[in-house]
Design a protein around this nucleic acid. Structure first.
Length: 611
RNA sequence: GCCGGAAUAGCUCAGUCGGUAGAGCGACUGAUUCGUAAUCAGUAGGUCCGCGGUUCGAUUCCGCGUUCCGGCACCA
């Protein structure tokens, strides 16, 4: 972006910021008209509009939106001026008391007492007064009346803390023109059509059944194909990088998690223990507790510990697409994106401190390769640190400040050295160490952690892991946890939305569907399908009794990447007519040629077919 | 977990001011043999989410529960 464009875009963002911020005040004014006696929380501009939080005297639902919007438009029409006023701290607090706004008061006190502000600013427009930093438009006439739209009502904790009161948040879109608003709303609606929960059902990828349980998706045949293909790719990348595959059970004794610290730091996210009676040495009954594992690492640590290790063996790379189970909060569970039983593209790399840098480089190179195969480019890196000031710090993180500082520095230096831009994620670390998270933008515009690389300094020593160094002495290895393909669940959820359900040929559940013009050509179609299946291509024949149009429609609806149409011409010439998903233009090519480009696209995992 | 909303056929949805329900698509059967996004006809398919309450009678009203959706918190 050149400088002119940059400054223009910033100027328009500033004006948009004012519009959104001012509209928040306008909405709050209208809400107070409809629900007199309600109190205010925060009401900031956001990426696509604004929201405002309230404690309402009686609920508002989207059924109230038309009236609320009418009132807002009336305010805009009135041309209310925004008046700014700055008061010294004591007067400001007195003013807020008059306003009867306890939450504003709490925040104002904090601004004055903890942050030492000497004065606070207020904005008044019409009857509405708010403590607010601004900036705002001069008058509500500057705000286009047709460029905002109320979106949804939601709950939100005061100041984002679940120990606080739950407020009602009203979200709205807001832009500087009707066209920009329409565009945003259209994009939102298009994103809804790509929703993985919807496509997952329509494309037969997964289902969730009440009798199995919440957050425990069942992978249907089409979804299982995608899993298997991803797993195959992961295995190949890992094999090439010297990983060794292991297989370990889904449960372990509770005592293991006592030792690792999971029970101390992670208990809330774990399924509770299963109690069983086992026979003790003397034949007596002994109570034993087993836990569904929430992570694979302790099991892999035990694989590591199963053999004596020398520094010459390191790094040791142990990989498993391992199943783990986590007791996710009921309100968090959603489709495949947040589940309670998941299968993780896990590997643990045990290394010396000196090797950490090289191992991270190797892992990040692997991430790059994996994402480039999938055509994923819209992501950024987050360095996730612990938060020593967290109120629940001792519960959330292993208490070892020097280790945190040292390992976080290693990662920060490494990122700087590799010239990788990143954002800081304070309080986003794992309990056992800092991590580098890969944050993807989802189609609905939110960021989501898909993959992570974690540096674990805490658990290996607790399990007594060691290797013999060149000095003949035992040393404790570091463990690096990595999962470029995340869990099958979250990654496939993300990929469904990324591809809009139209997977590249190598990943598609059905790779080729052969459509006959009439069932006179069923023999030819059958021969094509058999031949392709002989090469492990997932080819199917369309139903015989439908019309060509109907079969094409069905194939497109199921987003089959390659529709092959055969009729008299093709049967006579030994050719096929190929209609690629998303392309109107078709090509007729010999069956041999089609097979060649198809197999090449599959083996190279191409995003497109070269014809 | 918290706030709010929703739940009717496989899917998308209509409907019953309280008298046990309908459409389109899909499925199945038959006819049609067709050249690029829906051929025609017929058939089957529903404890109207569950449990209580009110009522002569509840899918409809009320309560509780379950699940899902939009958020918040938490997180791969």
């Amino acid at each position: 972006m050149n400088n002119v464009a940059e400054s223009e875009s910033r100027a328009s963002e500033d004006s948009l910021y004012r519009i959104r911020h001012s509209l928040a005040h306008v909405m709050a004014q209208a809400v107070l008209q409809m629900r007199e006696g309600s109190t205010l929380g925060f009401g900031p501009p956001i990426d696509d509009g604004f929201y405002y939080d309230f404690i309402l005297t009686s609920p508002i639902t989207d059924a109230d939106f038309p009236e609320l919007e009418r009132r807002m438009k009336r305010i805009l029409k009135q041309g209310q001026r925004f008046y700014r006023e700055e008061l010294p701290a004591d007067e400001a607090l007195a003013r807020i008391d008059e306003m009867g706004e306890p939450y504003k008061r709490e925040y104002a006190e904090e601004l004055v007492q903890s942050r030492g502000l000497e004065g606070l600013t207020f904005y008044r427009n019409g009857q509405f007064l708010d403590m607010c930093d601004g900036p705002h438009v001069d008058t509500t006439r500057e705000i286009p009346r047709d460029a905002f739209k109320l979106r949804s009502v939601a709950g939100a904790y005061w100041r984002g803390d679940s120990r606080n009161v739950m407020m009602t948040r009203i979200y709205a879109w807001a832009y500087d023109s009707r066209e920009a608003l329409d565009k945003a709303v259209r994009e939102y609606e298009l994103a809804q059509e790509r929703d993985h929960k919807r496509l997952g059902r329509e494309l037969g990828i997964f289902t969730v059944d009440d009798d199995i349980g919440r957050g425990l998706p069942l992978w249907l045949p089409n979804g299982t194909v995608i899993r298997d293909e991803l797993e195959k790719l992961a295995n190949e990348l890992e094999f090439r990088a010297g990983y060794q595959r292991v297989a370990t059970p889904h449960i372990a004794k509770a005592s293991l998690y006592e030792t690792t610290g999971h029970l101390a730091h992670y208990r809330d996210s774990m399924y509770p223990a299963m109690e069983v009676m086992e026979e003790g040495e003397g034949g007596e009954s002994v109570k034993e507790e087993y836990i569904l594992r929430p992570m694979n690492c302790p099991h892999h640590h035990k694989v590591y510990a199963a053999a004596p290790r020398s520094y010459r063996d390191l790094p040791v790379r142990l990989a498993e697409y391992g199943h783990v189970y986590r007791w996710e909060a009921s309100g968090a569970v959603s489709g495949l994106a947040r589940v309670r039983g998941m299968c993780m593209n896990d590997a643990h790399i045990y290394c010396t401190e000196e090797q950490i840098g090289d191992v991270f480089r190797e892992v990040i190179a692997q991430y790059d390769e994996a994402y480039s195969i999938l055509g994923l480019t819209d992501y950024f890196i987050r360095l996730s640190r612990w938060d020593p000031n967290d109120a629940k710090g001792r519960e959330k993180y292993v208490d070892a400040p020097e280790e945190w500082e040292r390992t976080e520095r290693i990662l920060a230096d490494l990122l700087a050295d590799m010239q990788i831009d990143y954002v800081e994620g304070v309080g986003e670390a794992a309990f056992y160490g800092p991590k580098i998270d890969v944050q993807f933008h989802t189609v609905t515009g939110r960021d989501e952690t898909v993959s992570t690389v974690q540096l674990d300094f805490a658990v290996p020593p607790r399990l007594g892991l060691s290797y013999t160094g060149a000095d003949g002495q035992p040393h404790t290895p570091y463990c690096i946890h990595r999962a470029p393909f995340s869990t099958h669940e979250r990654f496939v959820a993300f990929l469904i939305e990324h591809f809009g359900g139209a997977f590249p040929t190598w990943l598609a559940p059905v790779q080729v569907e052969v459509i006959t013009v009439s069932d006179q050509f069923a023999d030819y179609a059958g021969r094509i399908v058999d031949r392709l299946r002989g090469h492990f291509v997932r080819a199917v024949e369309a139903s015989e009794s439908d019309t060509v149009s109907k079969k094409i429609r069905a194939g497109l609806t199921r987003k089959v990447p390659n529709l092959v149409i055969v009729g008299e011409r093709e049967a006579a010439d030994g050719t096929v007519t190929l209609r690629r998903y998303g392309e109107r233009k078709q090509v007729t090519l010999s069956l041999d040629e089609f097979e060649r480009v198809l197999l090449e696209a599959i083996s190279k995992r191409s995003l497109a077919l070269k014809v």
